[in-house]
Amino acid sequence: MRISFRYISLLAGMLLLAAGTLRAEEEKATFNPKELVFAHLGDEYGWSIALPGGKHVAIPLPVIVRSRESGWYLFSSSRLEHGAGYAGFRIAPEGPHAGKIVEMNADGQERRPLDLSVTKNVLAVVITALVLLSVLFPLVRWYKHNPLRAPKGLLGFLEKIIEMVYAEVIVPVLGKEARKFGPYLLTLFFFIFFSNLLGLMVVFPGGANVTGNLSVTLALALCTFVVVNVSGSKKYWRETFWPEVPAWLKFPIPLMPLIELFGVLTKPLSLMIRLFANMLAGHLIMLVLVSLIFVFGMMGAVAQGGSALLSVLFALFMGLLDVLICFIQAYVFMILSTIFIALAREK
């Protein structure tokens, strides 16, 4: 305990110093926490990284758009930096499409082209995929070389997690069909888990708010929705469209079937919202806590120092809590998907 106190006070001291130097810069520009927080939570075309000394570097990413008038375009996001335009495209500074690429149509109105750009979040998704591959394939190689030996070290830890997910959740719930749905559910779990963890990292390969983005959780929920309904048994569909309730609840007004159908849709929707809201909240609270330092910074050095200490302690606590939440949310998404599949497979 004493050692951890010493580390925390050291950390706080360093942050006080850092806050003091940052104060000089922040004093000039008015600090807008709302803008900063939402910029970090959202997506962006290049991946901007803040460097010490108030500088920004943006990793350029490919922009892929299809104009309604002139077809496909592929160019670097660096061409659109600082409000610059390229080939009729620009990033809207405000309005309903703020922060997105827009083009002017013939009437002089801003419209969104078909936008398949590789944005920050897309790159983060790809990085997550690569991390996942580079972690799982060594395990595969280990098993190919040592068929009956348990892996050690990190691979052993990984195997423990796989066992916890597969042998303790998927197999007990799905039984004989575990081998059929296991690969999907395991991929789902590890993808979400790794995305969440990478999101907690502050700098480049991580830090993107991937699983706190509705499009991403929508894609995941959509996959579970498709798997559940494509593998639905006869009984599942009968219970959905002709459940065992008094006949007047089904005819002439199909009240129960409507409710059941609604349930079919709310299951994946709840998955989508739960993961999105939890991860968004995790990112949000950290950003807000750090922003507090700069908000108080506008009130003077003492207020800044005090708020820095408190904010850092809180942020540290929330960060540790977030590590737990990263795991829990991935686990919950996977468990619920497993249960939905099991319910749909009931004979």
């Binding site: 936008d115 750009s117 991403v216 929508l218 894609a219």
Partner: peptide, 13 residues
Amino acid sequence: PEFGLLFWMLLVF
């Protein structure tokens, strides 16, 4: 939801 991100996410996943 952003269509581009949804598309890439589905593809990669």
